[in-house]
Design a binder for these strands. Sequence first.
DNA 1: TAAATAGTGTCTCTTAGACAATATTAT
DNA 2: ATAATATTGTCTAAGAGACACTATTTA
Lengths: 237, 237
Amino acid sequence: MNTKIKANSYNPDDYERPSVAVDIVLFSIIEAKLKTLLIKRGSLPYMGDWAFPGGFVEIDESLDNAAYRELKEETNIDQSQIYLEQLYTFGKPNRDPRMRVITVTYFALVSVDKLNNPQAGDDAADVGWFSVFNPPDLAFDHSDILKYAITRLRYKLEYSAVGFQLMPETFTLRELQESYEIILVEKLDKGNFRSKLRRTNVIEPTKFYRDTRGRPARLYQFKVDAVAEIKTRRLFP
Amino acid sequence: MNTKIKANSYNPDDYERPSVAVDIVLFSIIEAKLKTLLIKRGSLPYMGDWAFPGGFVEIDESLDNAAYRELKEETNIDQSQIYLEQLYTFGKPNRDPRMRVITVTYFALVSVDKLNNPQAGDDAADVGWFSVFNPPDLAFDHSDILKYAITRLRYKLEYSAVGFQLMPETFTLRELQESYEIILVEKLDKGNFRSKLRRTNVIEPTKFYRDTRGRPARLYQFKVDAVAEIKTRRLFP
DNA sequence: TAAATAGTGTCTCTTAGACAATATTAT
DNA sequence: ATAATATTGTCTAAGAGACACTATTTA
């Protein structure tokens, strides 16, 4: 049946409808590791396994809003502090053994300094940040989702300024480089990293310095127009 | 409510479920124009406007299969002849005035020589190929979808060998370049186009030539491993 | 031979990447 | 001064793009 042509004859009750959920892969760099927020399942199926924060989409909210709402419930972070973009929609018929669930997955980044209350929401023992390279057992197809989210993160790092969403307001170039190295799992050349950054023209120096054990490092910040540019590209592709 | 934690207490009937559809933006190059397949709506809403082929996802089929099924119904082309990948999921609450419909959109490519019976399915007058740069009035948010699909097509053309899905089995380099020029809406340099192609190493010469009004042009084909590589990357991201 | 099209080569500028040199601080 | 770290520069190879040249066919 083609619903575009025969719309008048369409009766929603003729179809058994799937449930639609959102799941969010929230990344942050914590203690020099790339981590993601997971929630422990307290019931079947996959009891005891961990899953990404998420839940069902309400009938009158957009997909993006559903993702923001679920993140807010878990982390208590305002949506203005989080970078969010749609990742992929997973819909194999038996990915959830209880019923048909189609999940629209999201990819999210937050700077660790925004995590005022990382264990908010339910019981603290049931929520935690885990290294993405050594995660616990994940429920459903969430291993696939994680794998794809990491791929997307690495990919975006190469061609966009999205990485700064993982940094605090100001940072040294060494700190930014370390974040890239943690995500890409490779050493980068200091000089080349800096000259490439200079070309992209998205950061600017501040007047401040960070003390180190050697020469103090200048603190940088992302330019406001670069921030604005990435925020406008945030929701709709 | 967090369904991952409180799964036992979840009752599907507590939620009003959205309908889930797929819509496919099928591209082909026909008569030196980039065209897409559209279907005319015969009823409200948006009666008389055109829409992408699509329809509701059945409860026991995957999203990809739903997309292939809908394309098969409209074009009668086997899925092995079509390149298909998920594009984006659109889910604003009021994108369909009748009810909540979340649509998983797909991006598809087919070579014009595969279109045995382009007007299959319903009434021929209600199905047609339209220039993507001068489309008729589109129903729902399908203008947004088209815009994004074109962006994705151009983007993929730059960094992948996906373009060959628009070409017949063999083709001249001039023909391939023309396809690129049609999609990108810009003239490309013949020499640079060829040297870049040579570097990417995805095509190989055949023994055959195409007669022109000047020197005959060698026919090329895509290498089998390049075809295999893109086919493995076709479904899951 | 002239026109038309196919196919190749050359030059310059930019960028990526390896690596080296200099600068500024604390001890 | 030495260690430690920050910051800048230099060299080379590869690629992008502008442009010119050669090759092969038909009329």
